[in-house]
Amino acid sequence: MVKLWQPVDWPAPKRVRAIYSLRQGGISQPPFDSLNLGLHVSDNPDAVLTNRAMLQGAAKLPQSPYWLNQVHSTTILDVSCTSDRETPTADAMTSRALSMPLAIMTADCLPVLLCDQQGDWIAAIHAGWRGLVDGIIEKTVAKYPGDPASLVAWLGPCIGPEAFEVGKDVRSQFLDASPEAASAFVEYREKYLANLPLLAQQRLASIGVMNVTFSHLCTYTDAASFFSYRRDGVTGRMASIIWLSD
């Protein structure tokens, strides 16, 4: 039987549940084959909704996840304070609500999941390089009412440091914010290879979040498991999903 998802392996409390989806086991046709979860990529909407329902059943999610219209912004939605299930435009979510899965879609960008050690607060972040530069991680952590040192973070599948080619302008934007970011870039063919997870870990450390787990999974090189926008152009989306159990 094809595996649709994997559990997130991190030191979170038991009442915090988290998974990430794989690309196999759905019904979408090429180039979205096959467990595409993104409605915004020109796939057949009925296929996408079927894929979402299949994942919900296979992973035993308590209900349909909360999905976002992600636009590389720093807009953060508190799901605890809304009952609106229309798809809002935002790139991060926080919640204290039980049994409300938060879903972040990616196909090279970095999914970041957060929770506190008590299992009372969770967050899900869509962290591409633009969001990282603009402070999406710092702004999300600022929504947490407690000490950031008590947070636990997971950095999910994304384009790896041996595949993410960027220009000098991208590197300059990170270095303008923090000289430490230089260690996350390696010169390559008059450009640079960027290490997204390291950049995220640096941003987390700068605000006191030290308990960070790296997935070490590369979307670009593992075509059997993951969609990759950089590799394929027109392609599907995976999801990283977190929720508080009863």
Rank of each mutant, 00 (worst) to 15 (best):
K3I: 11
L4M: 15
Q6I: 10
D9G: 00
K14R: 12
R17F: 05
A18T: 01
R23N: 10
G26P: 08
P30S: 14
D33H: 14
G38S: 14
G38F: 11
L55F: 10
Q56F: 04
G57P: 00
G57S: 15
L61Y: 04
W67N: 08
N69A: 13
I76Y: 03
L77C: 10
C81E: 14
T87N: 07
T89P: 00
A90M: 09
T94A: 09
R96G: 05
S99E: 15
M100S: 12
A107L: 04
V112S: 03
Q117T: 07
D120N: 13
A123E: 02
I125V: 05
G128I: 03
G135V: 01
I136F: 04
T140H: 00
V141P: 01
K143I: 03
G156W: 02
G160T: 07
G160A: 10
P161Y: 09
E165I: 13
E165D: 11
K168R: 11
D169H: 06
S172P: 08
S172L: 11
Y192I: 08
Y192M: 09
A194G: 09
P197M: 08
L199V: 11
T213G: 11
H216F: 14
H216T: 12
L217P: 00
L217I: 05
C218S: 15
G233Q: 11
T235K: 03
R237S: 10
A239I: 03
I241R: 01
